Computed example of a mutant assay.
Amino acid sequence: MAATGMGTLEIVSRMRMSDLGQGTLDALAITTERLCCEYASSPSLQLQVEGRAWLGRITGLLDQRLTLAQHRELLMQAGWLALLVGCVEYDLGDKRGAEATRRAAMSLGNEAGQAEISGWAHEMQAWYCLTQGDYRGTIVAGEAGQHVAPNSGVAVQLAAQRAKAWARIGDRRQVEVALDQGRSMLEQLPYPDNIENHFVVDPAKFDFYAMDCYRILGEDRLAETYARHVIEAGTDFSGRERSPMRNAEARITLGVVAARQGDVDQAVAYGQRALRGDRQSIPSLLMCSRELSAVLQERNPDNAEVRDYLDNLRDVASLPAQTND
């Protein structure tokens, strides 16, 4: 300190100085929340561009003189934005880019001391594995995420992802164990302030996961009941869809139930409508649609409407990944 010519108080005061005002941090937090709330319905490419732009702005802010608390706040907001961008990249079919962004979000969460961000990064890995057919990978990622963030909303979703994986493995008991664990955790959490935020789990979202499990297990009555609840919750009074991606998977579920009951026309109608949505998560949509196509091909392989649906499904599957690079 003698070498600096400054006393202790002056040194500490300088360490606490900042070029960044609280208003900027507040505006950034509001913007991050808004973007996370727009995930369900905003065009994917638009959301990707905006999310990346705000990550770039945060990079610039990190170059300024900041307090330790401000530095952590910026890392936290960057972590949430990276999670969002990674989800959108995966929706668009950019698997490599999505994985890189997911890893960046994990690092940001760890550096900022935000276990929930790290937990969501594990949840994204579970989702990636599920849609790529790596069900054991989904279970491992789910368990890792619950270890990192055991008492948060993401732990509920991680339990649900594990349940979906167990359903596809064919272990009914483990499905029920995971679903019961998720419901129990959800009941212990306070009702979220903003259920529009993609990184918030509410009862309607958990119904969406249960629907998927019961469709795979062949519990048609339960699957249909949950599917109708999902569509009702995801549609407002005017008929506008608040959750088009969830609604698409709910319609595929209704299509699977209809196909199993021998109503081919209804099954195809549900399947075709699911493929027409403007806001899509391509990997998830293809995973569920292929489950419907398998039932239709098994029971009605020569039906002209079935063949037309399968052609449309192949068209969606052959679309190249969309990026803004």
Rank of each mutant, 00 (worst) to 15 (best):
I11T: 09
M15Q: 11
M17V: 10
M17C: 10
L20G: 00
L20H: 03
G23P: 09
L25I: 07
T32Q: 14
R34L: 13
S41Y: 13
L47R: 11
R52A: 12
A53K: 12
W54D: 06
L55W: 08
I58Q: 08
T59M: 11
T59F: 07
D63Q: 15
L66P: 02
G79H: 12
G79P: 10
W80P: 12
W80L: 13
A82W: 10
G86D: 04
E89R: 15
L92S: 05
E99A: 12
T101K: 04
R102N: 13
R103T: 08
M106E: 10
N110Q: 13
E111A: 15
E111I: 15
Q114G: 01
E116N: 06
G119L: 10
Q125V: 12
L130Y: 04
T131I: 01
R136Q: 14
T138D: 03
V140Q: 04
V140S: 03
A141N: 03
Q146L: 05
Q146F: 00
V148Y: 00
V148P: 00
A149C: 07
P150D: 08
P150H: 04
N151G: 03
G153K: 08
V154S: 11
R162M: 15
W166D: 03
W166L: 07
I169A: 07
V177S: 02
L179T: 04
L189K: 07
Y191D: 09
P192R: 04
N194P: 01
I195L: 08
E196N: 12
N197E: 03
V200N: 01
V200C: 11
P203D: 04
K205E: 02
A210G: 01
Y214F: 14
G218W: 13
E219R: 10
L222N: 04
A223D: 01
A223F: 08
T225Y: 10
Y226E: 01
R228P: 00
H229W: 05
D236H: 04
G239A: 14
E241I: 09
R246D: 12
A248T: 03
A250E: 07
T253K: 05
V257R: 02
G262S: 13
A267Y: 08
Y270D: 06
E291C: 03
S293N: 05
D302N: 06
R307W: 00
R307G: 00
L310A: 03
L310W: 00
D315S: 02
V316F: 02
V316Q: 00
S318A: 15
S318E: 05
